[in-house]
Amino acid sequence: MVSGSGLINANPIIYEKKKRRARPAPVVADDEYALRAISLTLLNHIRDIKDPEHPYSLEELKVITEDAVEVDDNNSYVRVTFTPTVEHCSMATIIGLCLRVKLMRSLPLRYKVDIRVAPGSHATEPAVNKQLNDKERVAAALENPNLVDMVDECLTPSYG
């Protein structure tokens, strides 16, 4: 994806990582669905994904923030909104794909995952959104060994 002409965003701004919030003590004896702070858990799953271009995590680049994750547990629905670092970023689809793969591996099947670019943060926003939420195109992308390698590479430094 990265062509010979160099990086898309050669000099991104790096933000400080937030301290991991300690797991809130369970109020009742054990964590039931109603009580778990699921959006934080979710964030923990995706915050360490590496940027495809830079050796920083998505959180450090503020591609993902705490408010970016919305969860509706009763309806098994998750929506992740991410903000590409620059408007014309061609990495946006890759980042979205990484997010989707990671969530696919970390969430039970019953969840419907919706991934989109933050409104106004990308030049071709509708196209990217459409591409990311099209099952067939995602499946096709995951058939492509180059793309899968790239995604796996981005997911490696994460834990959890």
């Binding site: 054990d30 964590d31 039931e32 669905y33 799953h45 970390s106 039970p108 099947l109």
Partner: peptide
């Protein structure tokens, strides 16, 4: 299936 376990530790381990 285990990703939907009712215990948190198990879910994390499953991930």
């Amino acid at each position: 299936k285990v990703l939907d376990d009712k215990k948190r530790v198990v879910r994390q381990e499953a991930v």
